[in-house]
Amino acid sequence: MPTRLAALASVLAAAFALWPLFALDVAWPGTVRDYLEAKGTVESGAMNLVSAIYLGYRAYDTLGETVVLLVAVTGAIGMMAAGSALAPREAGGAPVEPARSPRREARSRQRTELIAALSGKLGAVILIFGLYVMLYGHVSPGGGFQGGVVVASGIVFLALGSHGAAPSPLVGARNLARIESAGFAILLVAACLGVASGKGFLAPPLPGGDPVSFIIVLNAVIGIKVGAGIGLLCVAMLTEEAA
């Protein structure tokens, strides 16, 4: 059975890859870890060591992650656009309405009232929580990515609360796309400002400004960009289903 064989092979490969971790008794390299543990929060000014590292020391990696997310969202939206372009069309060019089974219609009628009443109101609360996680990432667990994803789920709730149509401009796919592009542009400009003032790429640009304020700015920009990006993906899926 080929599936069994593949499963067995993958288990063996995983064991082979992980085996050195358990078998070797060489000490883990600890120089950077000890340095960051001792100086990380002091040098960057962020109480949360995770935020201190990923925006204070390794902000270049974070920039790369936002690019990965941008490419992923672009690819998914492109695939969905190609899929709807390939959908069967009548001679006039209008998409053929797929015949809906009565069961599915009944189901979609069932879901509306309860979900609309609940999730439309929950959405605002989740948005506030996402903004909190985003803006307080330097003192409490969280940060731009985490807050952004929470904001995205808030956007999904708002979109669900409006029967899949776009009620507020915030939930419109076009606006979300604009917000994401603007967020990425601001992020790049903020990263390059340090070069202009001679501090270096992604360094806090203001003279005498403490690094923690730059971390807060980066967290906010990354959070808005990530939230708009993932929210755009979900809203595009929801509204395509409704259309």
């Binding site: 996680v133 667990p141 940060g143 985490q146 994803v149 789920s153 993906l233 979900c234 899926m237």
Partner: peptide
Amino acid sequence: PDVAITEAAVGAGVSTVV
């Protein structure tokens, strides 16, 4: 807790919706 927030938001929330 940072990873926990991410896992809860991405894994249990957004990816399930998708």
